[in-house]
Design a protein around this nucleic acid. Structure first.
Lengths: 257, 257
DNA sequence: CCTGACCCATCACGCAGCGTGAGGGTCAAA
DNA sequence: TTTGACCCTCACGCTGCGTGATGGGTCAGG
């Protein structure tokens, strides 16, 4: 007898035994005979029918539609067209979805706050989590710190990059004035000091001229800040300090509000 | 109190009440309070959370992934990337499917025998099922009919269209020879007659020259055939008849096998 | 005759995300 | 107080099988 068991049929067609059981359950492919022990036995005709089923299944057709086709109740072409239409629709939906996800991804990327890793990449040694801790200890109770923290926590990597670029321009202005031999109370130096103040206001916290003086003092007192400026040009730290004080002197009288 | 019931929330977000129930069941969105009667009451915070859920749901994200994002257990970007990958994969699969279905459809179409409707469209009044019946009565017992029937029953609409185009060329050849004043035994007329014979052999049944004569006689005897030719050009029916006979005279002697 | 290694069988739950009743309280207006 | 619109909690249904659990069948070797 050339009748095959479930396992053999499954291997031949590359489908699972469970699938054959399922087709039997729903009446899509009921094997013509059973052995005495109740084993399903598939005839050549069954295999032919199964071949058709597997083919249409690969086209994503639902089982009941395949049943109709095999029963001759409905023309194949109709089902194929319906399949075609539904696949086209899902294809469109998926394409929309893909675009929506791409958009979301991009928006998320550009809106995601920078991670400590991002910051290390941007600022090198001058950024470290311990230094942040220390600063938190020292300044954490001040309004300026809280304001700064609440703003910077939402900064993205590109925000930080923009900030850095701007701050380098400010430093370059100081360095240029120093290199040109301008005194610390020259208009150029004052302009640089004012730009420095506005830069900090723009990115971190409100900074009036008296507070700005304090900051300048700290730049000289804390060797890490001093080093930052001295690395750019020797004498720059003191120059920046003096310029800021001169700027505060010059402007404080003219503040109006 | 600005707490909303399920129905209100559902309307606002354009989702179903059942969906809200489901989110509650699986713990994705458990409304903060219940009324005394057990009604779900959604707070502003709940609505915010729901807005996020709905957004990600529109991106096709599974509920548990959304849960993780909301819990802060997993970064959003990871999930978005996974979504992106899986959507891209499904998109490819669907595109393959679409192609497979198109192929299947085309194969099916080109292999599907033409229906009587197709034939009526192609041949107009000259095709009718009664005429087929009548022809079956008259010729059904002949070998030529059987051969023709067994071949034509598999012809598709495009096969028939090709046959029609070819037959019109043959008729045009006859008409041209007639219009040019060539006698029915001129080489052009003979060539047309031979083309006519081969055309019938190619599409319908084996046709030797003696059988061809019989066919020519019938074209004159049956007024429906006669009309077909006379509609093309007056005198064409007789001309075709004569040409076929002349062609048979000319070739029959030279037939070698 | 027993044992083991594979076959096969029939339940029956699981899944993903709700849809869709069934059966029964609740609430505000008339 | 009745009505009608809402709300509640089960609980099954859908698609096409995957994945055990539990229990017999078959065949070769000891």
């Amino acid at each position: 007898m050339d009748e095959l068991s479930v396992g053999e049929v499954a291997r031949i067609f590359g489908i699972s035994v469970r699938t054959l059981h399922h087709y039997d359950e729903v009446g899509l492919l009921v094997p013509q005979t059973r052995s005495l022990a109740g084993y399903r036995l598939y005839s050549a005709a069954d295999l032919e029918r199964l071949a058709t089923i597997v083919t249409y299944r690969r086209l994503g057709m639902p089982l009941d539609a395949i049943g109709e086709i095999l029963a001759g109740d409905a023309p194949l072409v109709d089902h194929l067209r319906r399949q075609q239409a539904s696949v086209a629709e899902r294809l469109n939906e998926l394409a929309d979805l893909a675009r929506a996800i791409d958009d979301a991804l991009e928006r998320t990327m550009t809106n995601t706050p920078a991670t400590p890793e991002d910051l290390k990449k941007l600022f090198g040694e001058s950024y470290s989590e311990e230094r942040q801790e220390e600063a938190q200890q020292t300044w954490g109770h001040t309004d300026a710190w809280r304001q700064s923290a609440s703003r910077t926590k939402r900064y993205t990597a590109s925000d930080w990059a923009a900030m850095k670029a701007e701050s380098e321009q400010v430093n370059a202005a100081f360095a240029a004035a120093l290199a040109a031999g301008m005194p610390a109370d020259s208009p150029d130096a004052l302009a640089a000091a004012e730009a420095h103040r506005r830069h900090i206001e723009a990115w971190f916290y409100d900074l009036d001229h008296s507070f700005h003086r304090g900051l300048a003092d700290m730049y000289l007192a804390d060797p890490r800040f001093t080093k930052t400026y001295e690395d750019i040009a020797p004498g720059l730290a003191a120059y920046v300090h003096d310029a800021i004080h001169a700027n505060a002197d010059a402007r404080q009288g003219s503040e109006r509000y």
